[in-house]
Simulated scan of single mutants.
Amino acid sequence: MIDAALFSSALGALTPILFAALAGALCQRAGVFNISLEGTMLVGCFAAVAGSWHTGSAWAGVVAAMLAGTAYSLILAIGTVTFGGDPIVLGVAVNLLAVGLTSFLIRTVFGTRGTFSDPALAGLEPVDIPGLDRVPFLGDVLSGHTLLGYVSWLAVAGLAVLLYRHPWGLRLRGVGERPEAAASLGVSVGRYRYGVILAGGALCGLAGAQLALGNVTLFSENMTAGRGWIAVVAVLLGRALPVGVLAAAVLFGLAEAFGFRLQGIGLPQQATDAAPYVVTLLALFASSGRLRSRRLMRGSP
C-alpha cells in the first residue's frame, strides 16, 4: 500500500494547498489573517478553465487564474486596509460570494450546470526531469509532476529568503508585528498589506490553476472542496513559516493520497474523502494541546 505512487500522488495533492497556504502565510506576516483562500482559489479554478478553453492554451489559463485571483482579492484588500473591516467577516463573505459567482458563471459562460469538461480543454502536462526519472523510487516520486508543482516547491525557498534575507521582508514582518513602529519609520503599512493580499490572490490563482488544469482537467462547482480551509490550518500549524507551511501541506497531501488509496481497495468514497479533514482536526487538537502545555509551563492561564 505504501509505495512510490502513493508519495507521488501526495506531492500532486499538496500543490494547490501549498500555494494557498503560502498566500495565507504571506498575509499573516503582514498582520492580515486571510481566510478567503478557499473562495479565491475557486475563482482561480474557473478562470483557469475559461482561459484555457477560450485560447486553447493551458498557460493562458494559468495567467487568467493569476489575474482573476489578484483582482478578486481586491475585495478583501479594500475592505480590510482601506475601510478597516474585520478580515474574518470579509473572508467568509468572499468565500460565499465565490461559490455563488462561479455557479452563475458556469451557466453563463459554458451553458452547463455542475461540471464543465471538454476534450478540447488544454491541461497542464507532466514534466519528466532528465536523469531523475531513471532513478529507482526517487524518480517515480519526484519526476512527472506539472511545472506548477515544481514552482510551488521553489516558492517555499523564495518566500523564506524574501522574508528573512531581504529588506522588504524585514519591513513586512515589522508591519505585521509592530505596525505603529513601522509607520513611525516611514513604512507604509497600508501599501504593504495591499501588496501581500494581492500577491496572495495571485498565489491562490496558481492553486486554482493546478487544481483545475493539473490535478484534473475540468471545472466543477465548489471543486476546491475545503482545500482553502485546509490551507488556513496549514498556516496555523506551520506558524506562517514557509518551511512549516510546507511540512503541514505535505501532511495533508499524504492524507488525501492515502484516502484515494483506501477508496481503491473498496472503502466508501464518503469515508475516504474525509481523510484530509480528519487529519486536519487531529492536527488542530495536537497543536492546541501543545500551546496549552507551553502556557502552563510559563505559568500563564
Rank of each mutant, 00 (worst) to 15 (best):
G100K: 13
M223T: 05
L11H: 01
M66P: 00
P130I: 12
R292L: 15
G61C: 13
F116P: 00
L236E: 01
A48P: 00
A234K: 01
R191S: 12
V279A: 15
G123S: 09
A234L: 05
L203T: 08
H54I: 08
S36K: 05
G208I: 08
P179G: 04
A202P: 04
L162M: 12
L90I: 15
A120L: 11
V43E: 04
L170G: 07
T102G: 08
V235P: 00
L163N: 09
A231S: 05
G253P: 01
V49F: 10
V49M: 08
D128S: 15
V63P: 00
P87F: 01
R292E: 12
A23N: 01
V94F: 03
R227E: 08
F258W: 10
F19D: 00
G84H: 14
A58D: 03
G226Y: 03
G289I: 06
I17L: 15
R134H: 07
L284I: 14
A64R: 02
S117L: 10
G226H: 04
D118T: 08
R134S: 10
F258S: 13
Q263R: 08
G12S: 12
F116S: 01
L203W: 11
A20K: 06
V245F: 05
S188K: 09
A25P: 01
R227V: 04
A255M: 11
A50C: 10
G174Y: 00
L42A: 03
Q270N: 13
Q269F: 14
I230R: 01
G31L: 02
F33L: 14
A30D: 01
L262Y: 07
G91N: 09
N215P: 00
A48H: 04
R292Q: 13
G186E: 14
L254M: 14
R165I: 10
S57V: 03
A234Q: 02
T224D: 04
G79K: 04
G214E: 09
A286C: 09
S57F: 04
D86S: 11
R295M: 13
I35D: 03
G91P: 10
L142I: 08
D140R: 13
S300F: 09
W153S: 00
L90S: 04
L101R: 11
P119G: 13
L101V: 13
E256H: 11
W168S: 04
L148Y: 12
G69L: 02
S184T: 03
A183V: 02
A120W: 02
A71V: 15
T217F: 14
A255K: 03
L18Q: 03
Y150M: 09
L282E: 10
A4F: 02
L262W: 05
T112S: 07
F46V: 01
V189G: 11
V135E: 11
L251Q: 01
L251W: 00
L254V: 13
G84N: 11
I75R: 00
G114F: 14
L170P: 13
A65S: 12
L22Q: 02
L26G: 04
S57G: 07
T115H: 12
L14S: 10
T146R: 09
L237V: 12
G289L: 15
F46K: 02
A65R: 03
F260A: 14
S152H: 04
V127L: 14
L237S: 02
E180R: 14
R290G: 11
